[in-house]
């Protein structure tokens, strides 16, 4: 990986972190915020994006052809995907750790025999890892019930 590619991946990574914070804050997805203050997250996310672009373009000449170390369209797409995927994965993991004391009460009762709610909207009330764990717990319970000869199945 050349320095030029590395800079581009870092730019994509940092900008994605900022954009996800803005989008999550505006959508009320508290479980995806590093700091559970939506307004602060929006300003911080915006500052991160603007700062990252400014640093990127101020630090070195960026109009480099793909024949001289720059990136062609396919490489740009690929490295953007790498940076963005890393940022999204980091957001999911770090916010789950930072907010681990929050979001325990998800409103879903494992004993009720229902499936936990699906979709990101549930991250308004809990963290990504807690939501995944609930899903895993429900799948296990469902399997146990299905294997039991007297079972009637779970209520979906």
């Amino acid at each position: 990986m050349t320095a030029f590619i590395f800079d581009y991946v870092v730019l994509a990574f940092v900008c994605t972190l900022g954009v996800v914070q803005i989008a999550a804050a505006r959508s009320g997805l508290l479980g995806l915020l590093f700091v559970r203050r939506p307004r602060l997250s929006i300003y911080a996310g915006g500052a991160v994006v603007v700062g990252a672009f400014t640093c990127y373009f101020a630090s070195a000449p960026r109009n480099v052809p793909d024949t001289a170390g720059g990136l062609d369209g396919v490489d740009q797409t690929l490295w953007l995907a790498v940076g963005a995927a890393l940022a999204i994965a980091l957001t999911f993991l770090v916010t789950s750790v930072l907010n681990h004391r929050w979001g325990a009460d998800t409103g879903w009762d494992p004993a009720a025999g229902t499936w936990p709610p699906g979709g990101m909207t549930w991250l308004e009330r809990t963290t990504f890892l807690r939501a995944l764990w609930a899903r895993y717990t429900a799948v296990r319970a469902h399997r146990r019930l299905a294997e039991s000869p007297t079972s009637a199945g779970m209520v979906c």
């Binding site: 954009v19 996800v20 989008a23 999550a24 959508s27 009320g28 963005a84 999204i88 909207t121």
Partner: peptide, 10 residues
């Protein structure tokens, strides 16, 4: 990317 996460409900 922002649009992927943005929305008030599912």
């Amino acid at each position: 990317i922002g649009l992927w996460f943005y929305g008030t409900d599912n």
